[in-house]
Design a protein around this nucleic acid. Structure first.
Lengths: 192, 192
DNA sequence: GGCGAACTGTGATCCGGATCACATCTTTTT
DNA sequence: AAAAAGATGTGATCCGGATCACAGTTCGCC
């Protein structure tokens, strides 16, 4: 399947668009190819784009004063990623986004997104629905971090995103789950 | 200031509405008065409404199998609250929402919100902006939970929401921060 | 095809925060 | 006004997970 079709189907899961509407939307995207370890956004950058992952695997992370990296989000095929804090507030990026695997992403500037959102109601609706789902997902993650121990967090991730577990190195998984690499390694001694 | 004006000004912070548009929106809200400890939503309820807090203080919380309560969100004047997971997926509430102080909330059904969102572009925009801000806020909270210790989380809250700290009992604060009540109590021995 | 870097497992030790237990003190309720 | 329920502080003990240290393995690269 080509990337244009992939994007079209992605929208179709939540809203319906006429051919004309989709063409108008599509014309504002550009394709960007990246290799493993390459950065899409670096701390301090001016962030202008939303990124739709067509292929590959990326991570968004924050590096604290002591140099430790904390992973906020992974993104694989059909996921969106950006530093939304920087994007919406027009501030320098506090996150870094880089590739765990060779990847292809579609970029959409927030300026264009605003324009399209004004012109095409279904598109506006798409974004609202996405944000709602993302918001609810983050709430669940907060609850998980608040009162589940590392083992339960790991198991939950296994349920919800089994594909992710297999593609992401354990070191990075540990950081996403808020556990040390060593403790994570000890968790799944008893299982599988 | 009366509640109608309060709501109008709340919208005005993010979007501009004509008198006519605001009247149309306003007509879909109803006022609900609640006393301390009263529930707005209980686990298992069918959730139909968004709630805008006009006055008072509420909390949204999840109760785990062992009966412990974990606080996901507080809401005071000019904040919105609901069980969004239940609201958007039409599933029974997993959260409970109840009053920490006597409160007055404005209710808006999601059905009406969808209708207004379709009819009034600025209103749609308002919701999208709110969700974005909420999403970013939750991301920050996840980062805080991931790699800051209880003391730093407490200090951050003190910076960001000093008013909240003074109104919320320490027991509930502890639950929101993901610390035991006892440990929280020991945190601020050295300060102030 | 060999060298360095990233990845993963595992042992030993340590410590932050949970848990348990109790003592005020303050609100509510009746 | 008394009784019950909630809020807060504080000591003693315990344990999950962090940290430190090292080894084996796999991967990308000159």
């Amino acid at each position: 399947m080509d990337i244009k079709t992939q994007l079209r189907q992605h929208f179709a899961q939540l809203v319906s668009l006429t051919d004309d509407e989709f063409e108008r939307i599509w014309s504002h995207f550009s394709l960007k190819k990246l290799k493993k370890r390459q950065f899409l956004v670096q701390e301090g950058d001016h962030v202008k784009y939303h990124y739709f992952v067509a292929k590959g695997l990326l991570k968004a992370s924050y590096t604290d004063e002591s140099g430790k990296e904390h992973i906020l989000q992974f993104a694989m095929e059909d996921w969106w990623i950006s530093d939304y804090l920087a994007l919406y507030n027009n501030t320098p990026a506090t996150l870094s986004i880089d590739c765990i695997e060779d990847s292809e992403v579609l970029t959409l500037s927030d300026e264009d997104r605003q324009k399209l959102t004004r012109e095409i109601h279904a598109f506006s609706n798409f974004f609202l629905q996405k944000k709602n789902a993302g918001y609810v997902g983050l709430q669940q993650r907060v609850l998980l971090l608040l009162f589940k121990n590392p083992r339960e967090r790991y198991e939950r991730l296994q349920e919800l995103q089994p594909r992710l577990l297999q593609r992401v190195p354990k070191t990075l998984l540990a950081s996403y789950l808020g556990v040390s690499r060593e403790s994570l390694s000890r968790l799944y001694q008893g299982e599988l």
